[in-house]
Amino acid sequence: MTQVYFGGPDQPSGHLRDLLARHVDAVPQGGEILWSTYYFRDLALAEALVRARQRGVTVKLCLEASPKLASANQPVRERLASAAGLGDNFKAIKHLLPAHLHEKIYYFSHPSPVALVGSFNPSGNTPEDADVIREIGDQDRGHNCLIALEHPAAVANLRRHVLSLHAGGGGVSAYFDRPARSDYKSERLNIFYYPRWDSAIVARLIGGRKYHRIRIAASHFRDMSLARLLARQAQAGTSVTVIAHDTLRRVPRRIEAFAKSNGLSFIRYAHPENLPMHAKFILLEAAGFRRVLFGSMNLTLTSRFLNNEVLVALDDEPDIFAAFEARFAHMLAETAKFQKLSEG
């Protein structure tokens, strides 16, 4: 069974962090919690992890050591790295290369094993710091998603992956070799880990067949080679629609201009309160076939070639596809409303 959870302006603030908190509190003595994430500023959620450890849960956390906003993780890092926190079970992931631990994986052993994968970082805090929010966005209120995977083999695979990341070691060669060796493959569900020597997975999943419709929610889009692939699809008759974050750092004008000049419908999500569109998913439709791609992957060269990322491909699951389709339609309707408001 797979469940999809969305955060956004239409949901209560903190909807996804509260989901994680409930999962943490539900794991009993003898259970296990394994996390891998990029930003973690939520001190209350950090305390929930400490309480879990105190009641006899094995808690291991991998956290990016040097996120874009370098100071963002420091308070949680200091709390969890202490002997009274998680001690040696907390690991700040450092890189020799200009890369980041960007994947978001949250594994819980109880009440039944589940791994939540998606775009959400627990990057909010109370009280909030307005300067930080201006820099990284209010992820507790903006668009994000977490997908709860419950298939036993897939969940076991994600668990092994986080444990391997936590164990570390192996040097640069293993950094690129290990993720691809950890991939999970089944008839309808595939999990791909990055970085990897074979980095063109997204391009192959999009270009591997003739789709009649492609819809993309992209918080970051800077990979021109992928823009060219989508242009070729559009020129061959595929309907291609992209909803992208409005900031030029995340989605530069050259991507937008190229997309629009080559037949793509390209819409920027610009919320009146500057709430972010941080979702990352792709909907692919062909005759008798539907696929959704989701995870932590940005459409950037850094995500493709250097970062620790996770990408999930789920085929022909009507309820899951419909949930993402409805979310895409909701965001599209929001952008139309925002445009009308801006025009007075």
Results as ranks from 00 to 15, higher is better:
P28L: 08
A217T: 10
K260Y: 04
A92K: 07
Q339R: 14
L293F: 03
D42V: 03
L205E: 14
Y269I: 06
G288N: 12
S109P: 02
M277H: 11
R79N: 05
R268L: 10
L49D: 12
D129K: 08
L189G: 02
A167C: 12
R290N: 11
A180T: 06
R222V: 05
I147D: 00
A174P: 01
L283E: 06
R53H: 12
T247R: 11
H330S: 15
S199M: 06
D129R: 08
I93T: 11
A244G: 12
N157H: 08
A287N: 13
V4C: 07
S13Y: 10
V4W: 03
P12I: 05
L332D: 12
D131F: 11
S225G: 10
F324M: 06
K60Q: 15
E187D: 15
P252D: 05
I147E: 07
R160V: 04
G344F: 06
A48D: 13
T300G: 04
R215F: 00
P195N: 06
A270D: 15
Q29Y: 00
K340M: 12
Y106N: 09
L299V: 08
S219Y: 13
S239Y: 10
P28H: 09
T335F: 00
F289V: 11
L96E: 10
R160Q: 13
M1Y: 07
G85Q: 08
L19R: 03
L189S: 06
G14Y: 00
Y175K: 01
H278L: 05
A313T: 04
E128Q: 13
S225R: 13
C62A: 14
G237A: 02
A26P: 09
G7M: 00
I214P: 05
